[in-house]
Structure formats: C-alpha cells, structure tokens
Amino acid sequence: MFRNIISSLFPEKVKHYYRLRKYPEYRQNYEEEQELLRLKHQKQEITSNLLGFPFKAQNGLVFVKSYEEIYQKNNYYFETDKAAPVIIDCGSNVGMSILYFKKLYPNAKIIGFEPDAYIYSLLKENITLFSDIEVYQKAVWTEDTTLSFVLEGNFSSKVSLVDDKSNSRIVKVEAVDLNKFLEQKVDFFKIDVEGAEYYLIEHIAPKLVNVDKIFIEYHSFSEKPQNLSVILNILEKQGFRYDIKQPFPTKRPFIDQVTRMREKIFDTHFEIYGFKL
C-alpha cells in the first residue's frame, strides 16, 4: 500500500524515465517500439539498425510487418537437436526470415529464393555478414523454365500463369524445379509464394518424406477454386500433423469474404504449420 501511495506521487512521465534508466529490457522494448513507429509510414527504401546492424527494406511497411510476424510473433520458431539444420526458404523477400533462422541456429545451412531483382539486391546486402547461406534470384516452380512474374513491390509479387503483355508490372523471371533441393534431409521448409503453393506442393509431394517441418502460407484467389483440402491431404499422406492459423481473421466472414471476392484479391489466407512426430 505504501508503494502505491509513493507511486501515485510521481507523474507517469517521471516513472517512464526511471524505468528507462533502471530496466534494460524496458528500455529495449521502448526503443523497438519507437523505431517501428518511425518506419511504419515510410514509403521509400529504408535502413534500420533494429536487428543489430544496418538492414535494408524496400519500404517501412515491409520492414514493420515482417518484424512483427517474424521477431515479435516468432512465427518461424522451431526446435531441433541439430547444430547445423538445413533450412529452405521459398520467398525470402529482403531476408528477415533468413536472419531470424541464423539467430536461432548460427550454423544453419540456408537456401533462399527471391525472383524480384530489386528485392533480391537488398537481400544480398542484408546477408553479407553471414555464412552458409545460398540465395537464388529465381522463382521456385515445377520445372526449370521462364515464368511471368507480377511485381508488386511489397509482399504480394507472384507468379502469373497469364502472359498479359499490357500489364507493365509483369516481367520474365527464371524459375527452378524445387525438387532439386529436396534430395537432402530438410529440417525446416518455408513456402511463402503468394498463390503458387498449390502447384508446388502437388509437384514435390513425394519429396516431402525428406522434410521434418514445413510452413506454408496458403492463399486462394476469388476467381479460382479453393484447394486448401488438397494441400492438407498431401501433408497427411506424407506423415505430417498440422496446425492452421488465420493471420488476419475476418470479423464478418459472410460479408467480408464476398467483398474480397468482388475486389478480386486473396479471399482466404492461412498459415499452415506441418510437423512430424
């Protein structure tokens, strides 16, 4: 009670500065919050030291959303007995996921893919301080080929199965058969390829015997059939248990989903966590 009385005598601002000086964890959390606020609305390329060294992203929103998902929510956290696990990261973007894996397992051997030329250039800069990382400026696909690729600049760049020459955001990118990289044992396999996951999972299904844990971002497009059940059935047949999260839950599914379909955007977005016991 006495402590409460004393506390009430000091303004919140004074208590805040006291905590900043007294408690390192409080100061660290405050500095993190302020940096994310600084970056949030920056629409140009940014550099932040929040990860402990200069890290670049195409804009502030990409950095903040990635940081929240990867470092604050720990979406990719996993445990293994191996000191040097093998990790494949399909859809590496600017490399925040790769650096998270390196923080988790410094000796990890990581293979990453990012087809967007500009984003790939930032990715290469961001990983220069680390070893045992191979990154490819290629899309992952069902064969070695050239694909049409829609440049969105944030998270939503994706393979286009329609070659629309009138769309200035569509470019040609090299693609590699993902099966080539699944001949080895893989401890963690991340697939975040903005709608191409269905084609990939069907193609690599027999190779999933070599995968211990898998993370899949599932997206369905309003103009195409939903195929979540196909993906889950493949995981089950390959010996996976799974958990599913909806990163952005709809408050009124019967209303919001129809709106999304009319706007022709992703109408469903799930995170699938597959693991073997």
Rank of each mutant, 00 (worst) to 15 (best):
V150A: 13
K13A: 11
V86F: 11
R262N: 11
L37S: 13
D212S: 15
S121K: 10
N75R: 11
E125C: 07
P24I: 06
Y17P: 01
S148P: 02
H203K: 13
Y67K: 02
R252V: 11
N49Y: 11
W141T: 08
L99P: 02
L36C: 05
V171F: 10
F266A: 08
I87C: 03
Y118F: 15
L20P: 05
Y199F: 14
E223N: 14
F266K: 01
P85Y: 00
L232R: 08
K180S: 11
Y199K: 14
E217C: 02
F101C: 01
K73R: 12
E114S: 09
V173K: 09
Y76N: 00
E217K: 01
K15H: 10
N4H: 08
R262A: 03
E25M: 03
K109T: 08
F113W: 05
N210T: 07
E79G: 02
S131H: 14
F149L: 07
D267G: 02
Y30T: 14
E114G: 10
S222R: 06
S7F: 06
V140A: 04
I265S: 05
I191D: 02
K180F: 13
T128D: 07
Q28C: 03
L122K: 12
M261N: 12
E134C: 13
F10P: 03
E174D: 15
L129Q: 14
N29I: 07
K245G: 00
L51A: 04
R241V: 05
V135A: 13
E134M: 10
Y242T: 02
H203V: 07
N29H: 12
I46V: 15
E217M: 00
E31R: 13
N154Y: 09
N227K: 15
E271Q: 08
M96L: 13
L161T: 14
Q44L: 10
V171G: 05
V140C: 03
A83V: 10
K185E: 15
A108C: 01
F63A: 08
E236L: 14
P54K: 02
L232I: 08
K165A: 15
L9E: 02
L50V: 04
S220V: 06
Y118H: 13
F181V: 07
I111A: 01
F10D: 01
P249E: 04
P247G: 04
C90G: 07
G153F: 05
H203A: 09
K103G: 12
F221M: 11
K15C: 07
L61R: 15
F113N: 04
P225C: 05
I46E: 05
G52P: 05
Y26L: 04
L9W: 05
H203R: 09
E35H: 10
K15S: 09
L9T: 09
F275C: 03
I191P: 01
K138L: 09
I170Y: 05
E68V: 07
S168P: 15
V173Y: 06
G52M: 05
K15Y: 03
V140P: 03
K73N: 07
N227S: 11
F78V: 00
F130T: 11
N107T: 09
Q246S: 12
N59K: 06
